[in-house]
Design a protein around this nucleic acid. Sequence first.
DNA 1: CGAATGATTGAATCGCCCT
DNA 2: AAGGGCGATTCAATCATTC
Lengths: 384, 384
Amino acid sequence: MASVFPLADLKASVKSDSRPGSRTDSWVDTIIKGDCVSALEALPSHSVDIIFADPPYNLQLGGTLHRPDQSLVDAVDDEWDQFASFEAYDAFTRAWLLACRRVLKPTGSIWVIGSYHNIFRVGATLQDLNFWILNDIIWRKTNPMPNFKGRRFQNAHETMIWASPSAKAKGYTFNYDALKAANEDVQMRSDWLFPICNGSERLKGEDGKKAHPTQKPEALLARVIMASTKPGDIVLDPFFGSGTTGAVAKRLGRHFVGIEREQDYIDAAAARIAAVEPLGKAELTVMTGKKAEVRVAFNVLVESGLIKPGQVLTDAKRRYSAIVRADGTVASGGEAGSIHRLGAKVQGLDACNGWTFWHFEDGQSLRPIDDLRSVIRSDLAKAE
Amino acid sequence: MASVFPLADLKASVKSDSRPGSRTDSWVDTIIKGDCVSALEALPSHSVDIIFADPPYNLQLGGTLHRPDQSLVDAVDDEWDQFASFEAYDAFTRAWLLACRRVLKPTGSIWVIGSYHNIFRVGATLQDLNFWILNDIIWRKTNPMPNFKGRRFQNAHETMIWASPSAKAKGYTFNYDALKAANEDVQMRSDWLFPICNGSERLKGEDGKKAHPTQKPEALLARVIMASTKPGDIVLDPFFGSGTTGAVAKRLGRHFVGIEREQDYIDAAAARIAAVEPLGKAELTVMTGKKAEVRVAFNVLVESGLIKPGQVLTDAKRRYSAIVRADGTVASGGEAGSIHRLGAKVQGLDACNGWTFWHFEDGQSLRPIDDLRSVIRSDLAKAE
DNA sequence: CGAATGATTGAATCGCCCT
DNA sequence: AAGGGCGATTCAATCATTC
């Protein structure tokens, strides 16, 4: 059974920060010491918003290998042994992913990072467990380790899988508009370029050696968290290690939960996170697009007098026209309906966004009726 | 049982070319018509040098997809890409990979290309069958299809796995020095940049429509073949399709064997290959890929810490100011957006280059944020 | 004839809310 | 739970057409 590691200083520093939603649950903003699966089983169901997992990939690290029937594996180049070790890794993967799924909200999503040693097994297991892959993301390293022997290509990337808990779970957070605005106004691609973690960001022990062998760069976690969470969300990392996930989550106004077995890593991560200063609310505001705007129905424009019954609307090229009726529908050549239905109908399409399709005369020029909706919206905003 | 498709013209053109090693085997430089596994079983053991496989991806598409302009996306919904379940796909994968392994020389290697829909299953099956993964290679597309609904990252890459037939098989060909020399004297990385196959390279039917839905670019195959084969080697492609593998192999002085079920694809591939002129010995230099423009988005500055959330930017004359947010957008007086959009908005213009418009405080002076981009660029340039 | 503009297209697991 | 209405959503490159 896992025990909650209290981290009094950490909690204190967390409680005083600006993160929305006061979290009084004892396990939030803590590092839980213990085995990944049993620690996960001690958490409530459907309680975290995203999971970022950086699982181990080499099961043959020292020690002897046992088959599932407990017999000792005596030769590593035996075909059956290879198979057995993959099976063991798959069983491990299955166990922690199942435990993660129970803890994850239906509106949540999971990220797993790995290399070619393990990511194919992880991906296949995710699919077997009916997780629904949203993207695979390539972290391209600016400064990867060279291939010393010159027998292969330089291994210059790692792979992340982003998945929702099921094919039907479409409520996951994806801050599409913010990512696009931040990316030169084009949508963010599946290949990301970041340096590996080194220099002052890299945690060092007292001996000056790196504190953790696979510390991930904070910039990578920042993009993951900014892309797929909202401020105040809870980010779980079942393989916490040096605590990059927690440090970035705290800085970005998200809550974290870490699970880690080794006390040395817990100590390093706790000290690291305690030193993080969370950002303020204004800095953490996420840009949203039209999808997040309040709905304004077309008849509101008619009722408010911005559009008058009897007024004629046309498309931008004046190929089609329609007359506005007092009930907020529009009519054209015997057909009538919503601005969307009629727009679709006159063009012979299945669908149409009437707000951008229909235009009204404004002096010499034509302007989309969407402009008038913005007027309504800014009025509504002022009334708040 | 598969039947060898003779292709007399093709053989003739092949025999007259400059490829070393006269191949008199009837199956060399032909397209075999038939099911992949039975055709493979008809070939001699340990007879081919590399295999390039582009298996069905098992896309699981929902309904139809429309672009924002309401045009229909021509999806890959062919019968050959439909599988009843993951189990069925795994069984299929296992069968053709086992058949491939028998045909592959111990000194050979295999390449498999796929997307997140299938590549994890392929990779896990390769490992289960004791293939030894040498690299996973990312094909970054310069011009991928966008994500039309804004619900995910743009799917901008595909993944290739390169593997030898066993962990002990170290005799595979890897032209390390040639690749390095062709890559400005640095090691070739695991992420490659190529455009998708388009324009005149794309095979069209008599109706002007694409002859094959998933034709791969020749440049991609050229790098694969130049990296992992020697002149005169035999390249097998068990999912021949439009014959890109054969065309590139012939052009590069390698022999090919294709397996394909559909006569239409065979006809198109045969005509295509017959028209290929093999290169002379001196011309067989390694193809270099497209050099990426080093494109740095504003969020990279924020993620890397060069610009901090909360920091204030102004124009050169301090008439306008904006605050940087953690999501990589900037905000000013209720408005928010990309550095470009907001710069335009505050000035009342249609467009604005945010990189030169917005400045940050550097001691006593103001400097354009473009200066910080050059700092990042010199780091990132290493990966391009 | 060249430049500017518009149309087409590519391996795609592509919406959300209310009734 | 299924169905219907609202209304949001695209990047790079190749061709075709117009100026």
